[in-house]
Design a protein around this nucleic acid. Sequence first.
DNA 1: TGAAGTTCTCGTCATGATGT
DNA 2: ACATCATGACGAGAACTTCA
Length: 111
Amino acid sequence: KSYQHTTDFRLNELLIQKSPYFTATGDMPTYQIRAPTTALPQGVVMQLAEEATRKRELRLMKTGKACRECRRKKKEYVKCLENRVAVLENQNKTLIEELKALKDLYCHKAE
DNA sequence: TGAAGTTCTCGTCATGATGT
DNA sequence: ACATCATGACGAGAACTTCA
């Protein structure tokens, strides 16, 4: 199922963004109603647009929050992997040294 | 020192997965 | 069937680096 079949998409279709960026004064983006092509009464169109705007803002807020959380988890995961790499590198180093020592010991015994 | 290039951060969109 | 969530992809702007 594609995004274009969702309710959100259909509601968004009612809107066009006046400015893609937040206004200099406030934090809210501004929208306007797409030129009405249907025979719907103006009041209904307004209501639909308000509903669409509200839903859109809510969805964007939720997505933004989810995204921040997702990035935080990803960072944490990467940090864990990096720690693990460091631990394994240390272990590897220790084992190499141990092997070297055992080899030396073995050589001296053989003499 | 400032223009150009690079990296980082954030918001948004699109989509698959999962829940109801 | 539809809603919701998690996350990859993308673009824009900020912050940082490099170099003439």
